[in-house]
Design a protein around this nucleic acid. Structure first.
Lengths: 135, 135
DNA sequence: CGCTAGTTGCGAAATATTCGCAAGTAGCAG
DNA sequence: CTGCTACTTGCGAATATTTCGCAACTAGCG
């Protein structure tokens, strides 16, 4: 079966908590540690916040999830697979929009050409005013 | 003299603490609230951290300073005048480089054209790997 | 079946930031 | 120059967020 555990592959132990954290991140698309914990608790009530934090960190180390900074303070986690878009955060209404990563291709290229800087565009959100608030 | 207090102009009271916070931000270029407090304390020891936070917030409201997200959690404040560059944060070595804002002009334009999103490029740092770490 | 090391739970500790409240003072009017 | 009022400050406590220590637990392996 192709179902060789990806967690095992990464050299991690396959614990129910760990799987739950990973699938919670995947289902939520993007979520704060607290939201992940909440989601996980829906099916496995006894889980501890510390465990969520530790697993998020662990999963990040092996590259299965990544975090982005959307707003003030709170980091937001994504499954790596879905990291194909930018986050457009509106400073006025607080909404978070998406944009395909290629609108930034040009920008990333500039940075690479002129500064040798290899940009990870999606790590930080793009801040500004959404179309609705511009009006 | 042209020295009409800019703080007064904005409808704020001119308190020594407030002036100190503002000039600390200007001198430091970019700094966390804690660094600002430290700087301010050099000349005015009795100042309170809460006061720094409150003044930073107040100054931001009237547009004299702005904050940017450079790393995990801590906001970093700038005087508005110097906000003419992007921050290139290296995820590996932690260095913060600058780039003129126009390397992003194209990108900003794309976002405006396609999404009506008015981007404030400098609010969030650009994350990636600096030239040195790419190697 | 039994071992060993990686994990979990839990509460405490470390940080970062915000708030309430009483005392202090800048700016304005008289 | 004097007094008044509202905006500010200091300070400590309250929150929020994330990290740690430690003992108990268990996944994976022989």
């Amino acid at each position: 079966m192709a179902e060789q555990h990806e967690l095992r592959d990464k050299g991690l132990r396959l614990t129910p908590q760990r799987e739950l954290v990973l699938s919670a991140v995947r289902e939520l698309g993007h979520a704060t540690p607290e939201e992940v914990a909440e989601k996980v608790r829906a099916t496995h009530p006894g889980i501890n916040l510390s465990t969520v934090y530790r697993n998020l960190e662990t999963l990040e180390n092996v590259g299965l999830v990544q975090h982005t900074h959307l707003g003030h303070g709170g980091a937001t986690y994504h499954a790596s697979e879905v990291l194909t878009h930018l986050h457009l955060v509106c400073g006025t209404c607080g909404s978070v929009g998406d944009a395909p990563i290629d609108v930034a291709a040009n920008f990333v290229q500039n940075l690479a050409d002129d500064y040798g800087f290899k940009t990870d565009v999606s790590h930080f959100a793009i801040y500004g005013l959404c179309a609705a608030c511009v009006k």
